[in-house]
């Protein structure tokens, strides 16, 4: 039996509302950037809709409708919230965490890459924006857990192929990969790992305690 985590698993779990926040953020970013993913996700939501029709209804408290009607009395036209000017490069799901654009973030230099750790989610996850410089690679590494990456700008190549804007890349513990950014520009990604990565290349192994890529 194939026990590998697939994108469909993630879409199903996400439609069911089960994903932890950091993983949900990656999947939402993927959805924001890929119409094809949205179509598949819509089908997963349709499954939720079908099951909602099937579920054994639970009677509402007495007076629930009257309570709702009182709420409606207070409703006026949906107030349009003034949307602050945001960097249009920032996909919608990331705007809360990146309110002033990618360039305003406190990037930390890691040599071939830069990173910003995003403050979200339960402990045990590492949620980062990574900027890999054009044509550069990060040290070869594997993961103790899964690493989910969605490409926001540019592209990179690893053992699984070439990935561009909107692509979701799932690396499980068996994948040893060494992403190389496309030569024509920096590659910006959102990445979540659910366990610290292990560097496996000859130099990486030495750097491991120092450089947590």
């Amino acid at each position: 039996m194939n026990t590998e985590l697939t994108r469909d698993d993630l879409l199903f779990e996400h439609a069911a509302g089960h994903l932890p926040e950091p993983i949900a953020l990656v999947v939402d970013t993927h959805l924001a950037l890929s119409a094809e993913a949205r179509a598949r996700f819509a089908a997963c939501l349709a499954l939720g809709g079908a099951l909602l029709e099937e579920v054994e209804p639970e009677p509402l408290a007495a007076g629930a409708w009257q309570r709702l009607e009182r709420k409606l009395e207070r409703e006026r036209a949906l107030p349009r919230r003034e949307s602050e000017p945001v960097d249009p490069r920032v996909p919608r799901p990331l705007r809360r965490l990146v309110p002033r654009g990618f360039d305003a973030l406190p990037w930390r230099n890691l040599g071939p890459a830069q990173e910003v750790v995003l403050p979200i989610g339960p402990p045990g996850y590492r949620t980062r924006l990574l900027r890999l410089k054009a044509g550069k690679s990060v040290p070869r590494h594997t993961h103790e857990g899964h690493e989910l990456t969605v490409v926001i700008e540019g592209g990179f190549t690893d053992v699984q192929g070439h990935h561009v804007r909107g692509d979701l890349v799932i690396a499980d513990p068996s994948v040893e990969h060494r992403p190389i950014a496309d030569p024509d520009g920096d590659c910006l990604c959102l990445a979540v790992t659910d366990a610290p990565l292990r560097l496996t290349g000859p130099i990486g192994r030495l750097l491991n305690p120092l450089l947590r890529i």
């Binding site: 939402d28 949205r38 179509a39 819509a42 089908a43 349709a46």
Partner: peptide, 23 residues
Amino acid sequence: DLEVDPAPCGDAVAEFNQMSARI
């Protein structure tokens, strides 16, 4: 900002309709 639009875009709509009917 959790709005996930349940609607796919453009050409995907007809396929989506078939697909959700199948589901």
